[in-house]
């Protein structure tokens, strides 16, 4: 039986879809059979980040409403034979999801795949509930700013209330990914550090992703950054994926490149 990992955050625009795409690729590269599922009905984006937007014929709503088979809607990624993608509908809205249909779909996927990585929509309404209620694990994405951390805290607080696993007395494994860290700003005291965020959220850390311009070009091209062997963010996502598989890996040491003033300051401290 496969494991369902839901990627969530509360706030929009903090990197849920990017993380979903990269984690899905990372797990597939490790030899696992993976399906990335977009639950952001009406505002889909995972298709473009994965570079699979031109291959969509059917979507998950078509499957749930019986207009096609699951195998017709699943898109196989040509770059990695272990990776599949199930798109969201772009014409419907979040109310098109019905809990029992979602359950049926996810139970089927669990039989065929090792990992089901769900990109949840922003917010804490029905779309979020549908993406979290069967989750085994949750990756909470937070950027080091007050809005994101506040929303992440709120989401962490309600995951258990929505989860079936929690109702059965089991625990949804909740871990935080801190995204878009800018080391030079952290060092100058203008951005909260990883420790600051962890202290506030009080759940375990599973990934630290540095701000990386290459992510923008990767998204432009539809090639998740994890394929880029030379990028720091790509390396951070590789490590994140391996930690999901249970490896105990060090976190990347993120340090600012020191300019002239930094060197002078260093002399005095």
């Amino acid at each position: 039986m496969g494991t369902i990992i839901t990627v969530t955050s509360g706030k929009g625009g903090v990197g849920k879809s990017t993380t979903t795409a990269n984690v899905a690729v990372g797990l597939a590269q490790a030899g696992k059979r993976v399906v990335a599922v977009d639950f952001d009905i009406g505002l889909r984006n995972l298709d473009m980040i994965l570079g699979l937007e031109n291959r969509i014929v059917y979507d998950s709503i078509d499957v749930m409403e019986g207009r096609c088979n699951l195998s017709q809607a699943l898109i196989s990624d040509k770059r990695d034979k272990n990776l599949y993608f199930l798109p969201a509908s772009q014409t419907k809205d979040k109310s098109a999801l019905q809990k029992e249909k979602v359950r049926e779909l996810l139970e089927t996927l669990k039989k065929d795949f090792d990992y089901i990585v769900i990109d949840s929509p922003a917010g804490i309404e029905s779309g979020f509930e549908n993406s979290i209620f069967l989750a085994d694990e949750a990756l909470i994405i937070a950027t080091p700013d007050v809005s994101s951390v506040r929303d992440a805290d709120r989401v962490i607080g309600i995951i258990d209330a929505k989860s079936e696993k929690a109702k059965e007395g089991k625990e949804v494994k909740k871990r935080v990914v801190i995204n878009r860290i800018k080391p030079e700003m952290v060092e100058s005291g203008e951005m909260m550090s990883v420790d600051d965020v962890l202290n506030i959220l009080a759940i375990p850390l599973i990934g630290v992703i540095p701000e990386d311009k290459k992510i923008i070009s990767a998204t432009n091209l539809g090639e998740p950054i994890i394929y880029d062997k030379n990028s720091l963010a790509g390396e951070a996502y590789r490590r994140l994926s391996r930690r999901i598989l249970g490896e105990d890996l060090e976190f990347l040491e993120l340090k600012a490149k020191k300019g002239f003033l930094g060197i002078i300051k260093g002399l005095f401290s």
Binding site: D145, V146, V149, R150, D153, M185, V186, S188, G189, E190, M191, M192, S193, D196, N199, I200
Partner: peptide, 15 residues
């Protein structure tokens, strides 16, 4: 007082 410190303090009180 650096802004990161302010963010931390404001969040702690808010949360």
């Amino acid at each position: 007082k650096k802004s990161a410190e302010a963010a931390r303090d404001r969040l702690k009180i808010m949360l």
